[in-house]
Design a protein around this nucleic acid. Sequence first.
DNA 1: TCCATCGCTATTGAATACAATCTTGCCTGC
DNA 2: GCAGGCAAGATTGTATTCAATAGCGATGGA
Lengths: 225, 225
Amino acid sequence: MDGPAPNIPPLLPRALRVADTLRERMLDGALADGEKINEARLAAELGVSRTPLRTALHALAAEGLLDYAPNRGFTVRDFSAELIDEAFEIRAALEGLACRFAARHGLSPDARRAAEAALAEGEAVVETNRCGADELQRYRAANVAFHETILAAAGNRQLADTLRLVLNRPGPSLRRIVAFTPIDIRRRVDDHRRILEAISTGDPWRAELLMREHVSGIRGGAAKG
Amino acid sequence: MDGPAPNIPPLLPRALRVADTLRERMLDGALADGEKINEARLAAELGVSRTPLRTALHALAAEGLLDYAPNRGFTVRDFSAELIDEAFEIRAALEGLACRFAARHGLSPDARRAAEAALAEGEAVVETNRCGADELQRYRAANVAFHETILAAAGNRQLADTLRLVLNRPGPSLRRIVAFTPIDIRRRVDDHRRILEAISTGDPWRAELLMREHVSGIRGGAAKG
DNA sequence: TCCATCGCTATTGAATACAATCTTGCCTGC
DNA sequence: GCAGGCAAGATTGTATTCAATAGCGATGGA
């Protein structure tokens, strides 16, 4: 076969691509908060007809990223600063739950290996005692891998879906985490180790609590009570 | 003006009506788990064209009620028994969070009145010592009112949205709660009173814990964790 | 001057028509 | 008899067209 890439699905439907694009723009802030969406204009800009665009818009509204008023169209939802804090607490609660599930079920050998690897990578970054773009990139990847491994180990698709919706919101996106001093990273990696320990020793409630505190701490503060 | 009803919005868009209908059918089980959806057939059955139907389907997929595979269509997601337990734990975590937020902010006079009223109605039902269809209906209404009041008092729209998604899933829907012995109801109303107390005295963490236990208990069991 | 009403325009909602993709069964060749 | 591929039908994806609604300014009256 001389085809260039046999396993690329022929082409994702436009509606999905459009939805991804719009999500992207909201994360980038290219779509301002509260902005009203004009279907015809946006469709032209994206080079598609209104049909797939409308499909994407309704899906995003169902995800909670857009507001929709019948006969009045879509507006970009407002995600201002205090909303971000709230989103982090939701995320903390859900990830804590995932952690408890994972501890209850126990880790599969594969999952354990993946978690250990992510943890080791994080610790390796800490060992460098440096905090350049390269280290930051490595840490972020390891961090995402760790959290996703736990989420997968929870074995609860509904929870994964729910969490994904929260993470897709502009505020609490993992890629938005910016405050990275070496101390922060060290602290977080240490959190990860303790979380993994609690899961390994089969202590679901402790695992949940630790994960909850960990995620709350990412946003940068003690719990507010 | 002799118009019959001036404030009824002329008619909800078909897409929204169709989405509601389909949600309804999934809750009723009229759409079986894993069933593949044929757009043309379903559209004809509902008396609409494929356009609003597809809008509704994509929205439901975004909510997590349907599976969607590009170029292969939609299938009804499977919500079997063990998934319902998991959904209840998600619901417990989220409602617990709502409870904590409500306690942190404090209740507005209106919210307090509404919560007290719902609680009183529940207690009135308990006082009857009867458990017929009528009492059950009254209790259910009071129960929903109580939970919604707290959710509103939490003042966190993202949380409300997230919780709504979970509640809309076939399993944990509030209307599906069936085990209603007088003892169950008494217990739940008592839970409500304690929760309201914790909120009133400004004890966020206790409020959260109580609500979490309360919701977990609805599904009928001690936490498994 | 202010308010209500009418009608025009811009925008959204839905249906139909068409294109692309997948599925299925048959046929050919081995 | 079986594997592979090809073609026809079915199903999904997109564009275009038309209908319905909301927004808004003009116009006329009080």
